[in-house]
Amino acid sequence: MTAVPTIWPGADGEPVSCREKVKVLNENHAEAEQILRDAFEDAVLMGVDEAAMRRILTEMVAGLPSPRRR
């Protein structure tokens, strides 16, 4: 389990300070971690190479489009 960030850096360089936003970010972190863990475990148990699956998941995150570029 990874640690939830203690500070969520804002686009302006300042930490996100709104409690409700921090709450949502923390909940999203927990949900994403669980989904990624499940996908990783399933893949490895079905015979996918661990290093390859880590690379695939990393590439997936790196390839996410920015919602600001629409």
Rank of each mutant, 00 (worst) to 15 (best):
V4H: 04
V4T: 03
V4F: 03
P5V: 00
T6H: 06
I7T: 15
I7A: 11
I7F: 06
W8R: 00
P9M: 04
A11E: 10
D12F: 12
G13I: 01
G13V: 03
P15S: 02
P15T: 01
P15D: 01
P15F: 03
V16P: 00
V16G: 00
S17A: 11
R19F: 11
V22S: 01
K23R: 12
V24N: 04
V24C: 02
L25M: 06
N26D: 08
N26Q: 10
E27V: 12
E27Y: 08
N28C: 13
A30P: 02
A30E: 07
E31H: 10
A32N: 06
E33D: 08
D38L: 11
D38Y: 07
A39H: 08
E41N: 14
E41H: 10
A43Y: 05
L45S: 13
M46R: 14
M46S: 08
G47E: 01
V48A: 15
V48L: 15
V48R: 15
V48P: 03
A51M: 12
A52T: 14
R54K: 14
R55L: 14
I56R: 10
I56M: 10
L57H: 03
T58H: 11
E59M: 13
E59A: 09
M60S: 08
M60P: 00
V61M: 04
A62Q: 13
G63T: 01
P67A: 05
R70Q: 14
